Amino acid sequence: MLSIDQLMTEALSLPSALRAILAEKLVESLEFDVDETIQTLWSTEAKKRRDEIRSRAVLPIPGEEALVQISDLKS
Rank of each mutant, 00 (worst) to 15 (best):
residue 22 L to V: 14
residue 52 E to A: 13
residue 24 E to F: 07
residue 53 I to N: 10
residue 53 I to H: 06
residue 59 L to W: 01
residue 4 I to F: 15
residue 21 I to P: 02
residue 63 G to T: 05
residue 71 S to K: 12
residue 37 T to D: 15
residue 36 E to Y: 03
residue 39 Q to A: 15
residue 40 T to V: 12
residue 30 L to T: 00
residue 70 I to T: 14
residue 44 T to W: 12
residue 70 I to C: 10
residue 31 E to A: 02
residue 9 T to M: 09
residue 32 F to L: 04
residue 42 W to H: 11
residue 38 I to H: 08
residue 49 R to W: 01
residue 4 I to P: 09
residue 75 S to A: 10
residue 64 E to S: 04
residue 19 R to Y: 05
residue 50 R to M: 04
residue 28 E to K: 00
residue 72 D to A: 15
residue 59 L to P: 04
residue 53 I to G: 03
residue 70 I to M: 13
residue 71 S to L: 13
residue 17 A to L: 07
residue 47 K to F: 09
residue 26 L to P: 03
residue 15 P to I: 01
residue 72 D to V: 11
residue 24 E to H: 11
residue 6 Q to V: 06
residue 55 S to D: 14
residue 25 K to T: 02
residue 50 R to P: 02
residue 43 S to P: 07
residue 49 R to H: 00
residue 40 T to R: 13
residue 3 S to H: 10
residue 6 Q to Y: 09
residue 50 R to Y: 01
residue 57 A to T: 05
residue 31 E to M: 03
residue 58 V to M: 00
residue 37 T to M: 15
residue 27 V to R: 00
residue 1 M to V: 00
residue 33 D to T: 08
residue 21 I to V: 15
residue 23 A to K: 09
residue 6 Q to M: 11
residue 55 S to K: 11
residue 48 K to W: 14
residue 17 A to N: 01
residue 70 I to W: 15
residue 21 I to L: 08
residue 23 A to W: 00
residue 5 D to I: 12
residue 24 E to I: 08
residue 66 A to K: 11
residue 70 I to H: 11
